[in-house]
């Protein structure tokens, strides 16, 4: 099957998963695993950083999972935290097992708008997974962007996803990486505290910068508010939202937040678009 044929099938039957196979499985944290997938007949999923797929564990159910791999090539990669029946079944899949894939869906990170600007990535926990494709793109086309900074917060040192990769990024000269944890035992020599405390240690030109934030909703709100205080424009701050999703194509209604369908209009939005709705309780 060609790449285009996959996209055509997806459009004709948007609610029907295509069968892929797990080719690799790695444990990232105590409760998160990364899966490498191969679509039927070697087709490749063409996606933009920040887009997501609906993954089916056959007989169990479906979940929205962001692509965490490199948009420039390689296998289709997803990183999944086991929190309930579907995500547990997905993370239990072994190499060779079949898995259902629908996608890619949604609007991703503003890679074109980021050109020529300082780019600040702020990730909380598994929020680094949806940001990783953006980071690959930034590093892959490094000359197109200004200063690139990754601020990353995890609960404990064990919860740092892609640990070796984060360390290798930290060793590079063309990206600033700062990591913090909420709680740590004594062998942790890094920063302790919430991710917002890293913002004042980072270097960027707020008048010509763009931020991409992904993590728990409260964390994203606090980071956005802190960045506004640092001089960021509300429309230069992007967040990736999560809501219950049953279709990913704007038909099931579940993912609504105010006037938006997170699956169709997002998951990535500017803070300017959402600020008002995020401030209203239980919207």
């Amino acid at each position: 099957m060609s790449d285009a044929a996959f996209a055509t099938l997806m459009h004709a039957q948007p609610m029907v998963p295509q069968v892929a196979h797990v080719r690799g499985r790695r444990k990232d944290t105590p409760d998160a695993w990364t899966l490498d997938l191969e679509l039927a007949n070697g087709a490749r999923l063409i996606y933009a950083p920040g887009q997501f797929n609906m993954l089916t564990a056959f007989g169990v159910g479906e979940a929205a999972i962001s692509v965490s791999g490199d948009p420039a090539g390689g296998p289709l990669i997803h990183t999944i935290r086991a929190v309930g029946p579907v995500s547990r079944a997905l993370t239990a899949l072994e190499p060779g097992d079949p898995i259902g894939v629908r996608g890619p869906f949604g609007v991703g990170w503003p890679m074109a708008q980021a050109e020529g600007k300082d780019v600040l990535l702020v990730a909380g926990g598994l929020g680094l997974a949806p940001l990783r494709p953006a980071l690959y793109r930034l590093l892959g086309e490094r000359a197109r962007f200004g200063r690139v900074t990754l601020l990353f917060g995890a609960r404990t040192p064990e919860d740092i996803v892609f640990r070796h990769e984060v360390e290798s990024w930290r060793a590079r000269f063309d990206i600033d990486v700062d990591v913090t944890v909420d709680h740590a035992a004594s062998e942790w020599h890094g920063h302790v505290g919430v991710v917002t405390t890293l913002i004042s240690r980072a270097t960027f030109d707020p008048c010509n910068a763009l931020a991409m934030i992904c993590g728990p909703e409260v964390m994203m709100r606090f980071v956005a508010m802190a960045l506004v205080e640092k001089g960021f424009g509300e429309d230069a701050i992007y967040l990736s939202m999560e809501r219950n999703m049953k279709c990913a194509i704007g038909h099931c209604g579940h993912c609504q937040l105010g006037p938006t369908f997170i699956c169709r209009d997002g998951p990535v939005f500017t803070y300017a678009q959402l600020k008002r709705f995020l401030a209203i309780k239980e919207l």
Binding site: M15, V60, G61, E62, K246, C252, G253, H254
Partner: peptide, 25 residues
């Protein structure tokens, strides 16, 4: 128009299906 989906499995685990039903906010 809201709907939800539900997956079903036969006892052997060899056959599964997904149904869609009306849902409510």
């Amino acid at each position: 128009f809201c709907t939800s989906v539900e997956d079903h499995n036969d006892l052997s685990g060899a056959e599964s299906s997904r149904t869609r039903r009306w849902d409510s906010c």
